[in-house]
């Protein structure tokens, strides 16, 4: 059986969650591997959430927020950007390929982008292999 990665997606309530809703409403189809968890803002995604997901069996984590300048809370996405950058470096020290954690901007009308991001990340992580045993991480 082929490897089906499990990915946890943290989507901000205002842009990205709405963008994912729109993808569904528009009946666009994407890989079923991302499990979406709603957060109020990408800036509210604690690094611990990401670590927890990776620890509990996720092969990848996706964080989606509003485009820079469009944050519902003015600049929460700036914080997300900074935090994820640091987190990715820390993960690579731990031997986890930082490509497993992805931060992207998906707006409320960006249904196509949402589908593309999900498919791309799913394909990338399939390429990387499972995080827990047999993966290509160092």
């Amino acid at each position: 059986m082929s490897f089906e990665p499990r990915i946890v997606g943290f989507l901000c309530n205002w842009c990205s969650y709405a963008g994912a809703d729109l993808a569904g409403v528009s009946r666009l189809k994407c890989a079923p591997n991302v499990h979406i968890i709603r957060t109020m803002c990408s800036g509210a995604v604690e690094p611990e959430f990401v670590v927890k997901a990776l620890q509990h069996g996720a092969d990848g984590v996706l964080i989606l927020g509003c485009h820079i300048g469009d944050c519902h809370y003015q600049y929460g996405n700036h914080r997300a950007k900074k935090r994820v950058a640091i987190l990715r470096r820390l993960l690579s020290y731990l031997g986890i390929d930082p490509r497993r954690v992805k931060l992207e901007w998906v707006c409320a009308s960006c249904a196509d982008d949402f589908v593309d991001v999900v498919n791309k990340l799913t394909a990338d992580i399939k390429e990387l292999g499972p995080l827990h045993g047999g993966g290509k991480d160092r």
Partner: peptide, 23 residues
């Protein structure tokens, strides 16, 4: 928005309805 809860190094801030326990 929860930005403070995500940043608090002491874990002293609870973001109602989106608490760390819940997530």
């Amino acid at each position: 928005c929860g930005a403070c809860a995500a940043a608090c190094p002491s874990g002293a801030i609870t973001h109602n309805y989106f608490t760390a326990d819940e997530i």
